[in-house]
C-alpha cells in the first residue's frame, strides 16, 4: 500500500513537476540501471536534485529507487520526516554518529542486498550553487561491499539556479541531467586496501566532471 502510494505521488506529481514546470533535458538515459543492486551517484546543489533523479526512472523501476539523505536534516520535523520516508522513500544516514563505531551505512547495505537502487550524493552536502565539493567515501565503501553493482555517475546542471541552498524560492529554469557509463568496483582492480577507496572516489568525481562538458553552456554568476 505504502509502496503504491509513493509510486503514485512520484509518477503523478514529482515527474510532471520536474518535466513540465521546471524543465529537464536528459542525455544518456540508456546508462541508467534498470534493476538493483545499483548505485546512482550525482553532484549535489539543491533539494530538487532528488526530484530530478527520481523523475529519470521508469515507473516500473521507481519503487526500488531509494535516495540516501542526512538524518539530521530530513528527520528534523515530523512533517519533513513523514515526507522523506513515505513520499521520497529516503534512507536516512545519521552522519552525526560517525566515529562512534556504529555502521552508518548498515541500512544502505541492507537495501542493496534487497536489490534496491540507491541514489547518493557523494558530496554529502549541497554546498555552493553550481560548484562541486570533495566526495565523501560512503559510496566507495558501498561499492566495495557490492563489487559487481554498477555505480552510475550523473551530472546535474542548473538545479542550483532553480533552488540554491538557503533559498525557499523556486524559480523555474531548464535543468540538464547527463548520465555516464556505469563503473564497478570489480573493474577498478581493487585489492581491498584503504587507498583503493580514495582512488575510486577520485575516479568517480573525475567522471562526473567530464560529464559536465556534455551539458549546454550555462552563464550564471
Amino acid at each position: 500500500m505504502k509502496k503504491y502510494f509513493r509510486q503514485a505521488i512520484q509518477i503523478f506529481i514529482a515527474r510532471p513537476v520536474a518535466h513540465l514546470l521546471i524543465g529537464l533535458d536528459v542525455i544518456g538515459k540508456e546508462h541508467l540501471p534498470t534493476e538493483g543492486p545499483a548505485i546512482v551517484a550525482a553532484n549535489h546543489n539543491s533539494h530538487i536534485d532528488t526530484l530530478i533523479l527520481l523523475s529519470l526512472f521508469s515507473s516500473r523501476v521507481l519503487p526500488d529507487v531509494r535516495p540516501v539523505g542526512a538524518a539530521d536534516h530530513f528527520l528534523r520535523t515530523r512533517t519533513l520526516s513523514w515526507v522523506s520516508r513515505y513520499i521520497i522513500g529516503m534512507i536516512p544516514i545519521h552522519r552525526k554518529n560517525s566515529g562512534s563505531g556504529e555502521d552508518l551505512l548498515a541500512d544502505c547495505k541492507t537495501a542493496m542486498a534487497d536489490g534496491k537502487i540507491l541514489v547518493i550524493f557523494p558530496e554529502g552536502t549541497r554546498g555552493e550553487a553550481e560548484e562541486m565539493e570533495d566526495f565523501k567515501t560512503g559510496v566507495a565503501r558501498l561499492a566495495a561491499e557490492f563489487p559487481d553493482a554498477p555505480v552510475t555517475p550523473v551530472y546535474i546542471q542548473g538545479a542550483g539556479r532553480v533552488m540554491p541552498r538557503g533559498s525557499k524560492l523556486l524559480v523555474p529554469f531548464n535543468c540538464t541531467a547527463v548520465i555516464g557509463k556505469p563503473i564497478r568496483w570489480s573493474d577498478e582492480g581493487a585489492d581491498g586496501q584503504g587507498s583503493e577507496k580514495y582512488k575510486f572516489m577520485k575516479n568517480l568525481k573525475t567522471t562526473i566532471k567530464e560529464l559536465s562538458q556534455d551539458a549546454p553552456p550555462m552563464q550564471w554568476d
Partner: peptide, 16 residues
C-alpha cells in the same frame, strides 16, 4: 521564455 532564460546570461541576484 524559460528556455530562453535558461540559455541567456543572467545573474545570481536576478532570480526574483
Amino acid at each position: 521564455l524559460k528556455e530562453y532564460l535558461t540559455l541567456a546570461p543572467t545573474r545570481k541576484e536576478d532570480r526574483g
